[in-house]
Write a protein that binds this DNA or RNA. Structure first.
Lengths: 339, 339
DNA sequence: TTGAAAGCGATACCAC
DNA sequence: GTGGTATCGCTTTCAA
């Protein structure tokens, strides 16, 4: 990667043209559609590019083309391994298609989310993959943005949009039925967040219980470990014949809180109480017994979102598509009751 | 934030100038140095900007200025909470100074790291904060990049560079002396990575032991949990009179591996064996007893790095500065021996 | 197949 | 204090 150290400024397309004894138009063509240039000329240009260490000025290109070959990924919590895994998959796809990826962390803050969406607009991004805050899901409209948007993990109320998510209702139902099969009868749900995702998980849980004639017990909470622990603790302090014989958490943080409450109460899993929840986070294999979870297909989700975005970029008028994926139930000691 | 829906293209500075009955020069000045424009004119322009929902075209601005008000943060592992915390601090500073932040994850892969550095060059970034891969630390030279670089967490061999890191030797010494104070005499070190950080931590450990006339026992490892566990397991299987009475891990992943090995061996902490290590990761408070760690001042590190970068951007010729910060020893049950 | 020239939208210089 | 104009580096007509 040589660079001419005598020249104070980086080489421009003009320098390349001069050196290759060609026009800037030709140089530009060699870069974008090499087959349209005769081999010998093309080679001269390519050599000049290599010799000068020329790199196209992206700002100039964008100014001219009115768009950047750049996509954004705005996640609601970068520390959540769920999103880290997704970002890896998206990055792969983007790289393979010669698109740059900008990673942004909205931190569940609608203001930050808004500011990042404006950033992407200012940068003339070609597209955005977004896990919206619950607030945004309520007022999201795809046509409000100057670029295609693919939503991930959370669905807006009804607007048709390109979307990738887990079959949340079914996943919650599978977890619930697993607990029922283990003999649990008083399953309490730690329900975190009013997002579509949260509501669907709750619906799946309630449906499974109703089918067996059992009453749901739902604790609506903010999705933090502390809140989960605080809510679970009093439940566990009640009479063993009355208290829940299983806790089900709708996300990883609440699951952690529930686990801590169970430990603090000195109860044994799964005999005193069973535990299960969403997201196959690393910590879930640490405790003894390990915690039963429903693992989301994060790589699939990321890849699907990237594909959806590329398709829409290629064909803006296409009707929106919704991709629903299944998770994997990972049964571990916290719920696997000995027969 | 109104936008004229009748105009097919976003408003440019010309549209604003026309509407405010001013020149584009004046509009530009209102944006960059408002005080240089007379109040009444300024207000007219600002109103026109608001009415049109004008946003400056960043590509045009960059093309003209030959630099973007944008900084990059390239971390070696986005899943490591250490870096997530740092990124939050950097983001705050950047936001407060009107700089955009691009977050990149090199994943400890020198090729990806290189590609992101090229990205930042292509984007004409004003500066970059970087936690270099060990490979890069060996050949890093600040003047090889077209923007100022501040390194974080890992130091190159000798090149003078703006740099923020933990006082690793002292931190390792504190952990070691703590273990010694608890009565441990055979402290084995799980040493991860050949980076400067790793080497300094090892040096601090060795110095502390030598001062008390004890022999170091170092296991050089790749920094993964699996490797840590695999290396610790055979150590723990030996005769209780011979085996280590403490394990010290130089990073969070090795610490986790060591903890798993201890659990698998059925040993009790801290009586059978004590455990301590670096990085106050969430999981360390999960086990019973919780794990003693040296917490890094992540927010401080991020803030210091951002400040250093801003200073260098303002004064490129300034001699490089190196900021060394102290960590916090958090003594928990895994090492706190009852007297 | 190739090249000359216009123009993307902003800023910087230089007159006034 | 204000405005005209050249210019940043590239792509895109359009004509040869």
């Amino acid at each position: 990667m040589p660079a001419d150290p005598s020249s104070p400024h980086p080489p421009s397309i003009k320098d390349v043209a001069r050196r290759a004894n060609a026009s800037t138009t030709t140089v530009s063509r060699v870069l974008s559609q090499p087959d349209a240039v005769r081999p010998d000329l093309r080679q001269r240009v390519q050599q000049a590019i290599a010799e000068l260490g020329y790199r196209p000025n992206l700002a100039a290109r964008r100014l001219r083309q009115q768009r950047a070959s750049l996509i954004g990924l705005i996640v609601s919590d970068i520390r959540n391994p769920f999103f880290t895994d997704i970002s890896r998959a998206v990055e792969d796809m983007a790289y393979r298609h010669g698109l740059r990826l900008i990673l942004c962390n909205s931190d569940e803050d609608p203001a930050k989310e808004q500011s990042y969406l404006e950033l992407m607009a200012d940068e003339q991004a070609s597209g955005v993959i977004l896990s919206p805050t619950p607030e945004l899901t309520r007022r999201f409209r795809a046509d409000q943005h100057p670029f295609p948007v693919v939503l991930v993990d959370r669905a807006p109320d009804d607007t048709p949009t390109d979307l990738v998510l887990l079959d949340n209702a079914h996943a919650a139902r599978r977890l619930t039925e697993h607990l029922l099969d283990q003999g649990c009868r008083r399953i309490a749900l730690l329900a975190g967040s009013r997002s579509s995702t949260g509501r669907e998980r709750q619906a799946g849980y309630e449906a499974a219980l109703r089918e067996r004639g059992l009453a749901p017990q739902v604790l609506p909470l903010r999705p933090t470990a502390d809140e989960g622990q605080a809510a679970a603790a009093p439940l566990l302090a009640t009479d063993p014949a009355e208290r829940p014989d299983a806790l089900l958490a709708t996300n990883g943080l609440l699951l952690l809180g529930a686990w801590k409450a169970i430990r603090a109460a000195g109860l044994t899993m799964p005999t005193d109480i069973a535990l299960a929840g969403f997201d196959n986070n690393d910590w879930t294999t640490l405790p003894e017994p390990a915690v039963t979870v429903l693992a989301q297909p994060t790589a699939d989700i990321g890849r699907s979102a990237a594909e959806l975005l590329l398709q829409r970029m290629a064909e803006p008028a296409r009707p929106p598509r919704r991709i629903v994926l299944e998770g994997t139930l990972m049964v571990r000691g916290s719920s696997a009751r000995q027969v």
